[in-house]
């Protein structure tokens, strides 16, 4: 392949390119008659596992959502391919103030995409960290379904379609995110 192209792909992408591509991706799904709504997959997975027999919320034609599960499978593959489009052990160029704040919470200097103390393979030896991640996942699954969507469905699709409910949901995302970041994380991270 063209080495110039590989060079462009391997370099970090500017935010306006990434944002533009995400917008196009959403429009592409709309053109295919679908919507960009990632968290719906959690409901589909519950239904596919037979939860519809006991809970009416999961009693729907989940097979009509198989396209989204395929999209999910693609996302996993894309994550793997994307990793190969990065220099080895890539770390984003972050603000200096973030590194200071992380240090104050007892985390090492940023390395990789996620802090190894919270999301690295070492967490499997720590019941406390496992519990915290289970809680985080539970909030994500419960909250997105209660709000009827996540970042893709509300922040990208809903706001693009000028939906007031999506704006309220995004305000909720930020209320929760700010509370966690500023009032909860600084206390629990040093304990882990």
């Amino acid at each position: 392949m063209n080495t110039k192209l590989i060079e462009i792909l391997m370099a970090p992408w500017p935010w306006y390119i990434s944002g533009f591509l995400i917008g196009l991706l959403m429009l592409g799904l709309v053109f295919l008659g679908k919507t960009f709504a990632f968290s719906s997959n959690f409901r589909t997975i519950c239904a596919a596992c037979g939860a519809g027999k006991f809970i009416p919320f999961f009693d729907f034609d989940w097979k009509s959502q198989i396209w989204n599960l395929i999209f999910l499978l693609g996302a996993i593959l894309g994550g793997h391919l994307g990793m190969h489009l990065q220099p080895e052990a890539f770390t984003p160029t972050l603000s200096a103030s973030l590194s200071n704040d992380l240090q104050a919470m007892g985390l090492e200097a940023p390395q990789g995409m996620h802090p190894k103390e919270l999301l690295g393979a070492e967490i499997w030896n720590s019941p406390g960290k496992i519990l915290v991640l289970i809680l985080a996942g539970f909030f994500i699954g419960f909250g997105t379904r209660y709000a009827g969507g996540c970042t893709s469905g509300h922040a990208i699709t809903g706001l693009s379609n000028l939906q007031l409910p999506s704006l309220i949901a995004v305000m909720g995302f930020f209320i929760g995110g700010l509370v966690m970041t500023h009032f909860i994380l600084p206390f629990i991270l040093p304990l882990l």
Partner: peptide, 18 residues
């Protein structure tokens, strides 16, 4: 939307992923 969104936001900031 507000309450569901807030619950998701708590998880989003903790896990660092949507």
């Amino acid at each position: 939307y507000l309450l569901g969104g807030t619950i998701f936001g708590l998880g989003w900031a903790l896990a660092g992923s949507c």
